[in-house]
Computed example of a mutant assay.
Amino acid sequence: MVSRHATSLELLIPGAAAMAVGSVVVVAVAVPEVSERVAAMAGLTALIGLIVRRPVAAGVAGLIGWFLTTGFLVNGLGELTFTTADWSRLALLTGAGLVGAAMRSPMPLRVSAWVPVVTAYRPIDRFAHHKTLS
Rank of each mutant, 00 (worst) to 15 (best):
S35N: 14
R37I: 01
V38H: 01
A39H: 01
A39M: 09
A39I: 13
A40W: 10
A40D: 07
M41P: 00
M41T: 05
M41V: 04
M41C: 01
A42Y: 04
G43I: 08
L44A: 12
L44Q: 10
L44S: 13
T45E: 05
T45D: 02
A46F: 06
L47E: 12
L47C: 12
I48Q: 00
G49K: 00
G49F: 00
G49I: 00
I51P: 15
I51M: 04
V52W: 08
V52S: 08
V52G: 14
R53W: 03
P55F: 11
A57G: 08
A58R: 09
A58H: 08
A58N: 13
V60F: 12
V60S: 11
G62R: 13
G62Q: 03
L63V: 15
I64L: 14
I64S: 15
G65Y: 13
W66P: 03
G71F: 14
F72D: 15
L73Y: 09
L73K: 12
V74Y: 02
V74E: 13
V74W: 03
N75D: 15
N75R: 14
G78L: 06
E79I: 15
E79D: 11
E79N: 10
T84K: 06
T84G: 07
D86N: 13
D86Y: 02
R89N: 11
A91R: 05
A91K: 02
L92I: 14
T94R: 06
G95T: 00
A96Q: 07
V99M: 02
G100R: 04
A101C: 04
M107P: 03
P108A: 11
R110L: 04
R110E: 12
S112F: 00
A113P: 02
A113W: 03
W114T: 15
V115Q: 08
P116R: 10
P116T: 15
V117S: 01
T119I: 04
A120D: 14
